[in-house]
Write a protein that binds this DNA or RNA. Structure first.
Lengths: 222, 222, 222, 222
DNA sequence: TATGAATGAGTTTTCATTCAT
DNA sequence: GATGAATGAAAACTCATTCAT
């Protein structure tokens, strides 16, 4: 069972959370965390609600107090995990070298961070990969389930990206389309290479991937 | 119910097929065709074996004479449909213009053919898209379910591609990786644009797609 | 949500009710009223305690402070509503014509009042009809849930009936049995005609109903 | 478990039934019979499908091969049992005395047969009574579940009734409405008297019942 | 080969009731 | 008294798979 922890009992209005509020938040997190681990262990279709509540240590009925059904739960997990991965990748892009570096180096660091994330957790890849795409952004931006914090983080991801372009004096017609194209490119080719070793191993493919991304940047530059 | 038809009762050894052989082949085809239509109508998970046999007009038990289970059936369908689409795309690439044309024009025609295939059948896209990838090729090449004919067709797809490169004096280190990268690129970005209109409509995205593919070709050229 | 109102805060001992007492009475009424509206909207079996407390605007646990369970609640509702309908019917019987009228005319007015009550609210009919019977009287007379006021009203219904017979010099062996027979007769045939249009519409059936009641009165006359 | 018996394996087309056909018919009957006994023992709402299949000795899924749900099953049972009771009552009406008897005597025998049926099985009464009404006739007449035989038997009930009227030279405007009125009258007052002893015991009430029916016959006579 | 009735484990979902706050 | 989060037993229904015919 994934540990329940809540170091900062402050609710979204900045007020101190009541014991009940804290408890509810923990139950919700317990469900999310344990469902996630089950999804990547057994796959979404093979995970039952019974599995989830058992591992989370709550009663069956409790599940339905927090989520409409298994799909509702999945949507939230995919969104949260995708943001996590992207933030990590951006972090990597900015900090990979201490001294000033070219845009190309930054992009390579960005894509490698995503790929390593997946490689380190092949199981996670199967669950997230095909969902880590532009759709995630719109989903969170519009969903009334996602809280303010989630939305903020998405904007962070995008703004970070813009900042990096700016620092490198890179200009293009539509940065959104550029980011979208890059993410889809990394994700789709990386998936095949990691999961299927097709058409070759990830290590063999990486140079092609970097070269490909570089060329896309050039192609969309004004 | 999709009609069962077999205009050419010749088996894979080139012999005239017996009535029994023809019958068996028809049953198999009926299952494949009707399962396909159900998968794109209701989705794979929501289609039951009962649904399939009902629509195919055969008994439940008969299903298990031809396929191990629903997954076995799906694999074969994805493979067949993917090849169909790729062949059509290559046909388009070669014949789009009558007079000699550049490689870039050919590639654009190739990718557009795939995208139009999907746009014309959004439902099919949901089922095939994420499976139309390099994995398909290996699957068919190795599967003991797929017959000689399927394998031949795959080689055709690849050989056609090589021929086009050759005609245009295009040389690269590994044509397989090039083809793989292109297919994944079209498929992943096209899916998002068609299904989700994200980050923009397909029509708005197409120029970016063409430019992207062109740049990839250049990047991998020796 | 049905409005909670209590214009006359006097308790059953004639004393002015405390704020707490008023509050409790209002909660109870809110539960009764909203449960009733739900029962006729969705049926008894399809109404949950959650539905009731939600609409009544009280907490789940509060329900159990006032009623043992859903059945307890239903019994009280049926009794209250039945009395309401009967009183209305008697009122109609007495006041339908201003000048002196025959017993037959009075009885017709009585039965029509009940039928119109139901016709105006087909939904109510489904819930009440099969319960509007002699059993109701005994239930209230004996129940320790029902208060003094309810019991009084039942006696009123019966005494009114006796008075009408008396005014018309009608004598029979057992007026209770007569009233019982008449009520069951109206209720059972009326239900079928209104709900099922079987064997004919209520309007077509009414003359038969009146003739039937008239004949029953004659049959039981001494 | 109610015994499965089938003495005459002839299907509705007059053909000899195959072993499979016989088996299916027996399964269906086992479900009907055992569900019925459970309904009158525990009530409809308190009987689960598990209860039914356990007692019938078939698997859970088998239930759904024969009935849509519990309500579908109930409808068929009510219809069958109602016809049974009515046929028995008519039999009694015709044969109660060997010598020629008056219509009044016949009617009394008819109503007494229904009442005795219920009295002998108070439990059955709770389940059937409120459903033994005109609605049953229309239900069966229209239902596509009921077979030809059921429909025939209903016509028998009605034709028998007409025959008895004819033998006694009784004429009325609408025999259907007469039969409807009588059945509802017996059923509603009898229910109260048997189940609730309200307003008095059945034995005490019977003379009133007979007198009431007699008066209704007179009232509707032309 | 082909059938389709039968199976029953497995899954989702509901909801009356409790009880700590 | 009032609350409402939590419970978990219980119910309906599904469906892949088998096997006697």
């Amino acid at each position: 069972m994934v540990a329940i922890a809540n170091s900062c009992p402050i609710n979204s209005f900045g007020e101190k959370m009541s014991k009940v509020e804290v408890n509810k938040k923990n139950k919700r997190l317990a469900l999310l965390d344990n469902a996630y681990s089950l999804f990547i262990e057994k796959g979404f279709n093979n995970t039952t609600i019974s599995d989830i509540v058992n591992r989370a240590g709550v009663a069956k009925g409790t599940f339905y107090l927090y989520f409409k059904d298994k799909f509702d739960l999945r949507n939230e997990i995919v969104a949260r995990k995708s943001i996590e991965i992207l933030l990590k990748a951006e972090e990597n892009m900015k900090s990979s070298g201490t001294e000033p570096k070219t845009l190309e180096e930054g992009i390579a660091a960005f894509s490698d961070a995503i790929l390593e994330c997946f490689r380190n957790n092949r199981l996670q890849l199967n669950f997230i990969s095909k969902n880590l795409s532009w759709g995630v952004f719109s989903h969170i931006a519009e969903s009334n389930f996602s809280n303010e914090k989630d939305r903020e983080e998405i904007n962070n991801v995008y703004n970070n990206f813009l900042a990096v372009l700016d620092e490198n004096n890179y200009k293009c017609a539509d940065p959104k389309i550029l980011l979208f194209t890059i993410i889809e490119f990394i994700n789709s080719t990386g998936y095949s290479a990691i999961v299927g070793d097709a058409p070759c191993s990830l290590d063999k493919y990486k140079p092609y991937l970097h070269k490909g991304i570089e060329s896309l940047f050039k192609a969309y530059k004004i």
